[in-house]
Design a protein around this nucleic acid. Structure first.
Lengths: 352, 352
DNA sequence: CTGTTAGCGCTTTCAT
DNA sequence: ATGAAAGCGCTAACAG
């Protein structure tokens, strides 16, 4: 229904055999420039477009990639997808989009479908939890590259492109330290954000700032969990005198939640408490105060992932299984120096 | 590289001809239940998975759809894509994802690529501007359904599924009127959001509330444009006495911008000015105050779009070319009754 | 109800 | 440099 003109017809019009047409279309080596011109003219005249299905079937290369992505409402995923689409276009690939849950059976099903379509490779933007599963299911058949959303203590059979989350944690700590904070707290996804926390913690320690266990609260990367965690951190009656002057949330959505929680408690940000996130999603710029955050360079992340995958597809084994991109600080308005006089500050903070 | 087992091998193992295998796989009519079982056993034993490329080539149905989507940073698009992916899965389709600009040549290129892959249909989540172009390029070859992002004064050769934006505008107006607002303003994308504005305006008029031209400011649906427009509306020195007590932004991103602008001016929302948006993106819940908005039901929108497209693919011509979903109000904290005493209020509003 | 014969549109050897 | 033959893995008529 969609396809009409075939190579045969082009060949007939051009007065050549139809393999010659194929050669022209694929830029295959040597042939008289004259015949090439004749063929191209015929192609243009007939409006011939190759049928990519047929080509894929014959050549075993479809120029398509599966894009497996965690169906989370975190805008970070979307912003990554946009960059991946750009990168894929650049390299001549089309993307099959598949949103997936963390359910293993579902994963398997999606992967099988992708394989049935002869994708040349797979990009997996999923939580670290499912990495091993995915790898197991498909590595023998088709190259996979994992992208950016997990920490980097992966098995070395896995190809992954990620951000240097330890460095990100360090950046956050340095920023807070530079401002003079000494009572800081962390909101994090305990199971998966270890490196972000480690970088943060180590930097504090190196500067003789202590991070008590009670000042590390878990969340699940969602806005709601960030909100709840911050409430706990800021509201806990007993701890009032020791209320943190700054909170580092290991992703922006939780940071947004923390910001909202502070505001909901009647606190002023950053006067009463500073908040810094990690991701660099657009959302941060929309909040008031706008969110200071450590940004992951999504464009280079996507580009690196594509490059890696393309090389794997071409059979060039990589030396290094893991690539990291460097994060950077985006300075906005949710961080400042800590309250000068903590006691006085506390009194003012109780407006609500 | 990816595919191994073929129908032939299954047939050999099962001791039948390989077309029988094909029949079993496609659930084609009658055959001894016994042979079916034998075949299925062989399939399972060999781990046979059909090659969808070959099937598509032979059957002229690929069970794939092109998803053309405007590459805008508006989260609304992403939230729609997630719903469309769900709907597609439900109907057994895979989605080719393509982000596209508003550039015509680029559009054409993407569309041709999609056609080369023999997609069964196309979902276009693009601004109304490109609708006609797309339609022209492809309507003869493959069914297209346009989704939700433009107003509904389309040509009737076009199949579109959209929200009832007039009703959305009406809802916004009713909410503001019910709260007692009489001095309201609108921030809108002038060229494309006419129906939202019309519904809003007409409802005001029916309730004897005037909407002067100066109270309608244009934007481009972005946060920045909403911010700028609100600044103009709230700051304009001369108009201070006539400052709007409520702002209706015709999408959430502009509403977020308006909210931020009010806050940046030192105003309190909703005490000094109410803000209401339209879309229902998650972002609204993250803001402080949380954004009251008129939500477009993205899930039903997506489901309707898929249903329409599937029917078109099956050759069942629709009676109606346009389907609309009903929006609803999400009440949060950015709207309230207008300031009791406008004069006194104004004085307080000048904090900054 | 099952098997035979074609052919979807293209890429690949392999001769010429 | 170009042409012929074969086949990618499947479905789609038909026969039997």
């Amino acid at each position: 229904m969609a396809q009409r003109v075939t190579q045969r017809e082009v060949a007939k019009l051009a007065g050549v055999s139809y393999q010659t047409v194929s050669n022209v279309m694929n830029g295959n080596a040597g042939m008289k420039d004259e015949t090439r011109q004749v063929v191209l003219a015929a192609v243009k005249k007939l409006g011939y477009k190759p049928n990519l299905l047929a080509r894929g079937l014959a050549s075993q290369r479809t120029q398509t990639l599966g894009l497996l992505i965690h169906n989370d409402t975190n805008p970070f995923y979307n912003e990554i997808v946009i960059e991946l689409d750009k990168a894929a276009k650049l390299h001549g690939y089309h993307l099959y989009l598949i949103y997936t849950s963390t359910n293993f059976a579902e994963h398997q099903d999606h992967l099988e479908r992708l394989l049935m379509r002869d994708v040349d490779g797979i990009l997996a933007v999923t939580g670290s939890s499912s990495m091993a599963e995915i790898q197991t299911v498909i590595s023998q058949n088709v190259p996979v590259v994992f992208i950016g959303l997990f920490e980097y203590d992966t098995k070395d059979t896995v190809f992954s492109v990620s951000a240097d989350f330890r460095a990100a944690g360090e950046l956050a700590a340095h920023h807070l330290l530079a401002l003079g904070h000494e009572r800081v707290a962390v909101i994090t996804e305990l199971e998966y954000h270890q490196y972000r926390v480690a970088g943060f913690k180590d930097t504090l320690k190196a500067n003789s700032v202590n991070l008590p266990k009670a000042m590390i609260v878990g969340g699940d990367s969602s806005f709601a969990s960030g909100h709840a965690a911050a409430l706990q951190l800021l509201q806990e009656p007993i701890k009032k005198s020791a209320r943190p002057s700054a909170i580092f949330a290991t992703n922006d959505l939780m940071a947004a939640g923390a910001l909202a929680a502070a505001l909901d408690l009647g606190l002023e940000v950053p006067r009463d408490v500073s908040v810094i996130g990690l991701d660099g999603i657009q959302l941060g710029a929309y909040l008031r105060p706008a969110l200071t955050t450590v940004a992951v360079p999504k464009d280079t992340l996507a580009e690196m992932a594509m490059k890696t995958l393309v090389q794997l597809i071409r059979g060039k084994t990589q030396e290094s299984a893991i690539a990291l991109t460097k994060p950077h600080l985006i300075l906005r308005n949710s961080t400042s120096r800590p309250p000068k006089d903590a006691k006085a500050q506390l009194a003012k903070g109780e407006i609500k």
